[in-house]
Design a protein around this nucleic acid. Structure first.
Lengths: 233, 233
DNA sequence: CCGACTTTGTTCAGGCGTTCACAAGCGGTT
DNA sequence: AACCGCTTGTGAACGCCTGAACAAAGTCGG
């Protein structure tokens, strides 16, 4: 087995690799043994050539004239994207959004396991969500040290997100997924990924208005026969 | 008042404009009257020059030597991003994530109002979430026609997401925010934005592994004095 | 054994986004 | 009225990502 090539892979490519991995997992469940780049691309919603370029970062992993081995490519992607080992995650802010994430069934199968839920609200602390008991946020440092959690998820109000972030980083967490609507400041060596739900809606509203104001053409009141795909992103 | 210039604004810029708008709203609440691009940029987590370039798409809206009028820029961004009018949104899939979104307090202040929650589960239908009663998904077409909803939010399981999407589009919805882990196929003229939580975690896992394997240097076990910002995105 | 077809992997050009750096313009001060 | 400092707006260079076309390689059929 040639060791994986840890050349720097563009972040946009990494995000797509994760999508390919999920599609492959579904194909494997269906008993498929091989896939072509074209089929994989349509299922993932991307261009076939782009998909092949993404996969080329891992070195040759397909067979010309045949396609890709579903199981083989799946295992290779799994290894590239962080291995099959379970990654402990700590979630701070067990509100509605936090509870929904902790209970999301899609995470465990991908190797992500929530090992602790933290909150400040005394009414929330002690309640059970998805098999875990919500603990007071004062135990943050203890929990991170015990579980060696490498990923922190912040679903707190914006006002306290930065202080929670600081405590997570000090405790040793180096990867943070932030749902709070603020830009977090972190030292070098820590990665933050932000998910901003308001921004997503706002972008849609902009596109909506742009459609209404500029071109009065192309307003389909009857759905067309689905030209493969379009604005999907 | 010069009419807004509907030149095509890059989508990445639109997403950042939404962030600026939120920051400006906070500054306005604090009673600030003017801001410089530098201050706005740090609060939004971007480069000052990039911020000015983003704003340049709206035409000149600042005063040289002084900065930007908080209220003026806020109003201008509000108008550019779809106006202040309330936009009705329909949410399909009132599970934990859907309920969390419907109850999110940050949306109404931005002009987004959920007018209907739909679900197939008979146990969920009829329950109240955030002031709304969950209705059966069979009423989708009726609800969209009544409320003239322009934005649809899909938080269903992946298996039914495409069929829900098709029904939304046929009913007249032209902007869709998709949380289901599938690539939706839509006709031209319909915009889809996808939020994939598993992908976000997977990217963090990749970055985590990349840090652990390649460079053994730069592992800060003590937080440094915060050099402004770093990996924030 | 050979030829043709299929599919991958790569190379090349094009467009887009980001960054830096500088000129233009406005307010405050003397 | 003129100067000076500060900030915006813009022009150009750089790098990245995307999309399409081409060569390499392996399989299937005769």
């Amino acid at each position: 087995m040639p060791e994986s090539r840890p050349r720097n892979i563009p972040e946009a490519t990494v995000a797509r690799l994760a999508v390919y991995l999920r599609v492959l997992a579904g194909l494997a469940d269906d008993g498929r043994s091989h896939v072509s780049s074209g089929e994989l691309a349509t299922a993932a919603g991307v261009n076939p050539a782009g998909l092949r370029k993404d996969l080329s970062h891992l070195g040759p992993c397909g067979v010309r004239g045949v396609g890709y081995s579903v199981a083989g490519l799946r295992d290779r992607l799994t290894e590239t994207l962080g291995g099959a080992r379970s990654r402990p995650c700590v979630l701070v802010g067990a509100g509605r959004l936090g509870s929904a994430l902790a209970d999301y069934s899609g995470f465990p199968s991908r190797g992500f396991e929530f090992v602790a839920l933290l909150d400040t609200d005394p009414a929330t602390v002690g309640s059970a969500v998805g098999g875990l008991t919500v603990r007071p946020v004062a135990e943050l440092e203890t929990v991170v040290a015990e579980t060696r959690a490498s990923i922190g998820v912040i679903t707190t109000p914006a006002e306290v997100a930065q202080s929670v972030c600081d405590r997570l980083v000090t405790a040793g967490v180096r990867s943070i997924l932030n749902f709070a609507p603020v830009a977090l400041a972190v030292p070098a060596g820590v990665d933050v990924r932000k998910v901003d739900l308001s921004v997503e809606l706002q972008v849609l509203a902009f596109l909506d208005q742009q459609r209404d104001t500029s071109p009065e053409l192309g307003v389909p009141d009857v759905v067309r026969p689905l030209p493969a795909r379009a604005g999907a992103r």
